[in-house]
Every structure is written in C-alpha cells, then in structure tokens.
Amino acid sequence: MKLTKCEQGHFFDADKYPACPYCNTDLQTETAIVQTSEVPAAELAAPDGPVAGWLVVLDGPARGRDLRLGVGRSFLGLDAAGAPATVSPDAPLGARQATVVYDPEADAFTLLPGSSQDLCYLAGQAVLEAQPLTGGEELKLGTATLRFVPFCGGGFRW
C-alpha cells in the first residue's frame, strides 16, 4: 500500500487508485473504501401489544389507510412511496418524523417531535415540543393529513 496525500489533503492508496478517489468520484467502485449508497429504507412495523389508538390518513398518499398506535411509543415516518407509516424502534433516527406515546399510567396520549429533519405538524404548527392529544386532532406528515382517533382513555385502558 502506497499511502499518498492529494493536493486537497485527502489520503488514499496510490497502488489502488491513479488519482485521489475523494476528489475524483469516478474512480470509486464497489470495492473502494469510499462508497456512496442510499441509506436503507426504514423498517416498517406495527407496534407490539394491544391497540391504543389510530391515525387515519384523510388526504395524500395512502388515503383511507390507518396506522395502528400501541401502548408506549409508536414511531411515525414515511415509507418508500412517501406514505405515512409506523416505523420500527430500530429505524434510523433520520426516519422518525414524530412519536405518539400512550402512557397507560397517566391514561394520556402525547405527540412528540421526531429526530428527522422533516417536521410533523399539528393543527398547522410544527411540533417542536410535546403536545397532548385528546382525539380528533389533525397531523400533517409529509404530504399526508392524518386524524388521531384514541381507543384507550375515557375510562378504558389495557
């Protein structure tokens, strides 16, 4: 291995590349150290356990579909087609646009901001801090509008 430094300060293997692969991305191949690839799509997953409520898609991609919300945290994001979906707790942080929490001890729902750069909106306002949900609220996730429908609460809880 012949470690070489290019004019821009990048180190590369001159035995493997005729020029800096960082500066000349055409030299990058599947076997190169530097690879550019798409981040894998977030794994979609319905929450474990009993249903605590739903989000129903009113408008946009997947219109008429519902998203099941479980007890505890339900992470929200977008699928490959841009439709709202519940994502796995193991999904990359950039895939989580919002979180709906049902706390059975407090018998209450809360909407939390996600860790994605894309925002979730509640009643037209960006969700930047925890917001209580009681039922009937409209959320915007991507280009879809969703309505929150609680199952737990008002005297019933699992």
Results as ranks from 00 to 15, higher is better:
G53D: 13
G135W: 07
P89L: 07
L141V: 03
V71R: 13
D13S: 13
Q8F: 15
A85W: 12
Q97Y: 08
V101G: 04
A62I: 01
E7H: 08
F156H: 13
P21K: 08
L27W: 07
T31I: 06
P47F: 13
A83L: 04
G82M: 12
Q97R: 14
V51R: 11
D90C: 02
L112V: 01
L111W: 05
A91D: 11
S37I: 00
E137G: 07
A42S: 14
E43R: 15
P132H: 07
Q35F: 01
G135Q: 06
A98S: 14
A144H: 00
D15L: 08
A14W: 13
D103Y: 08
A123C: 10
L146Y: 05
F11R: 07
R73F: 15
P92K: 07
R63T: 13
H10D: 06
D15S: 13
R73V: 02
A52S: 15
P47H: 15
Q35S: 06
P150M: 01
Y22I: 07
P113Y: 09
R96Y: 02
L133S: 04
F12K: 04
P104D: 09
T36G: 02
A62L: 02
Q131L: 02
G49L: 13
V57Q: 00
E137A: 10
L67S: 06
G53Y: 10
Q125N: 14
D59G: 02
M1C: 02
V56F: 10
G153D: 08
F75H: 13
F75K: 04
E105N: 03
V127F: 08
L112T: 00
C120A: 15
Q35I: 06
G124K: 08
L44G: 11
G94F: 05
R65K: 12
E129T: 09
P84M: 05
V127N: 06
E129I: 02
R65S: 05
T99Y: 12
L111E: 06
G94A: 11
L78N: 05
V87W: 11
A62C: 03
V87E: 09
A123D: 15
P89W: 08
V39A: 10
